[in-house]
C-alpha cells in the first residue's frame, strides 16, 4: 500500500475541525467534572437532549443555531435544578456520594434516552440550513461549511468560558470551589450556590453544543453513548478544568479519529477510550493539568 499524502492531509484538516466540535461538546463537562468533581455521566444525554430541542424548534421554523441560543437559558435552569436534586439527595450526605452519584447520573441518562424515544421515536433526525450541505473549496480540498460553523461556535464558547472563569469573581470562585470549599466560604462565598451556578453554566453550553451536534450529522436517541467516551476523553486529556486545554485535546481526538479512519473506519469509536486509557496511564493530570 503506497502512502497517500493527500488522504492524510485531508484527515488532518478534517480532524482539526471535527476536533473543535468535540471540544465544543466537552467544555461544559470540563466545568462539571473538571472543576466541580461531579461525575456527570448524564452529560452526553443532555447534549443529545439539546439536539432534540434544537430539532423541535427547527420544526417550528427556527434556524438550528438560533434554536441553540434560545435553548441556552432553558438549559441553564435545567442544570441548576439537576444540581439541586443531586446535592440534596447525594452530595449533602458526604462520604461515598461519588459512587452513588455515578448511579444517579446513570439513571438520569436512561430517563432522558427513554423520554426522547417516547417523544421523537428511534428514527434519525436532521435539520437543514444554508450552511449545511455546502462546502468551502480551497484548492482541491472541500471543507464542509457545517464543520466550519462548528469550529467557529466552539471557539466562541471556549473563549467566553475562559474569560468568564478567569476574569469574574464568580468565575474564579467556580475554579476554587473544588480545591477548598471551606476556604471559599471564608471569602464570603456560598460554595453550594457557586457549584449550582457553575452546573447551570455547564448545562447551558449543551444547548448550543446540541445544536452543533445535529448540524454536523443526523442524530438518534442513543447517540449519547458514543459521546461518553469522547467527552470524558477530551476532558481528562485536557487536564481537568482547562478550557484552552479542552480545545487542544478535542483537536487531538478529532485528528486521531480521522487519521485512524484512513486505515479502518470501524476502529474510530474505540479511539477515545484508547486515548483515555493511555492518558490515565502516562499522564493522569492531563496535558495541561496543574
Amino acid at each position: 500500500m503506497s502512502f497517500d499524502f493527500e488522504l492524510l492531509r485531508d484527515a488532518i484538516v478534517f480532524g482539526l475541525l471535527l476536533g473543535c466540535f468535540y471540544a465544543a461538546v466537552s467544555l461544559g463537562l470540563s466545568v462539571a467534572f473538571g472543576l466541580l468533581d461531579v461525575p456527570h455521566l448524564a452529560y452526553p444525554a443532555f447534549l443529545v437532549l439539546g439536539s432534540y430541542g434544537t430539532y423541535m424548534l427547527y420544526t417550528l421554523g427556527f434556524d438550528p443555531l438560533v434554536a441553540g441560543v434560545i435553548l441556552t437559558p432553558v438549559f441553564f435552569v435545567l442544570g441548576i435544578l439537576m444540581y439541586r436534586i443531586y446535592y440534596e439527595t447525594f452530595e449533602k450526605r458526604g462520604a461515598d456520594s461519588g459512587v452513588r452519584g455515578l448511579a444517579f447520573f446513570f439513571g438520569v441518562m436512561f430517563i432522558i434516552e427513554v423520554a426522547i424515544i417516547q417523544m421523537f421515536g428511534v428514527d434519525q433526525r436532521t435539520v437543514s440550513a444554508s450552511y449545511i450541505g455546502r462546502s468551502l473549496e480551497i484548492g482541491e480540498m472541500r471543507i464542509p461549511n457545517r464543520l466550519i460553523v462548528a469550529f467557529i461556535v466552539a471557539l466562541v464558547i471556549a473563549a467566553t468560558l475562559y474569560l468568564y472563569l478567569s476574569r469574574t469573581f464568580t468565575g474564579r470562585a467556580i475554579r476554587a470551589v473544588a480545591q477548598d470549599e471551606g476556604a471559599l466560604r471564608l471569602m464570603g462565598a456560598n460554595p453550594v450556590a457557586i457549584k449550582q451556578w457553575a452546573f447551570g453554566i455547564a448545562t447551558a453550553t449543551l444547548a448550543l453544543a446540541g445544536a452543533l451536534l445535529i448540524i454536523v450529522a443526523p442524530i438518534e436517541p442513543t447517540l449519547d453513548r458514543a459521546y461518553i467516551g469522547r467527552t470524558f476523553c477530551v476532558v481528562v486529556m485536557a487536564g481537568l478544568g482547562s478550557m484552552g486545554g479542552t480545545l487542544i485535546a478535542g483537536i487531538i481526538l478529532g485528528v486521531a479519529e480521522e487519521v485512524v479512519k484512513i486505515y479502518g473506519a470501524s476502529w474510530a469509536p474505540a479511539i477515545s477510550f484508547g486515548l483515555l486509557l493511555v492518558i490515565l496511564a502516562v499522564r493522569p493530570q492531563g496535558l495541561f493539568g496543574r
Binding site: F169, R172, R175, A176, L184, A189
Partner: peptide, 12 residues
C-alpha cells in the same frame, strides 16, 4: 487555593 495563582488567591 493551591492550583490558583497568587493574584487569583488575592482576588478571591
Amino acid at each position: 487555593f493551591p492550583k490558583l495563582t497568587v493574584e487569583e488567591n488575592l482576588m478571591l
